[in-house]
């Protein structure tokens, strides 16, 4: 009985903290994304990108983010995994990590005019523990080429 109470309180606490952190994080992500609109523009998959304009600076920029889920997410996903379907609690973790990495990359290149050929690379850090219901840790590297034009 005591075990059950401990587990339920633990789940409730992690549910609340996880939800609070996620909500705050999404709020921050949205604010920063709005601040970064059109500055610089990013484009995915432009391998043979060329321009007529004179270029002042060209360099690779990267952004990293490692986001962890909470225990409640792992618990509910563990139950859901038996029946199949969307593991929506995990989706939000990966979504946050991707957007955070992209934002960080763009924040490093605010002076650039365009970031071309952006790619995302992901690592699941605790892959080996999936079967034990340990919350996911999602690590993302976003990278691209930042191009600054010469002023004309």
């Amino acid at each position: 009985m005591l075990d059950l109470i401990i587990i339920i309180t633990f789940l409730a606490i992690t549910y609340l903290t996880g939800r609070y952190i996620e909500k705050n994080h999404y709020k921050k992500i949205k604010q920063r994304e709005i601040a970064l609109i059109r500055k610089p523009i990013i484009s995915f998959g432009a391998k043979r990108w060329t321009t007529e304009r004179k270029i002042k600076d060209i360099k690779m920029v990267t952004g990293e983010a490692v986001i962890a889920g909470d225990y409640f997410k792992a618990f509910t996903a563990g139950i859901k995994q038996k029946f199949g379907g969307n593991l929506s609690t995990y989706e939000s973790v990966i979504d946050r990590a991707r957007r955070e990495a992209l934002i960080r990359m763009r924040e490093k290149a605010t002076k650039a005019d365009i970031i071309v050929n952006v790619r995302l690379e992901s690592i699941l850090l605790n892959q080996a523990y999936i079967q034990y219901n340990i919350p996911p840790q999602c690590a993302i590297i976003a990278y691209g080429t930042a191009v600054t034009y010469e002023n004309e």
Partner: peptide
Amino acid sequence: GAGLKNTIGGELKSYTHLLSEAR
């Protein structure tokens, strides 16, 4: 610290740092 963060959720700043160092 990351283990604690992993149960309550949130960003693992030490790992982000580690990843950027590795990169």
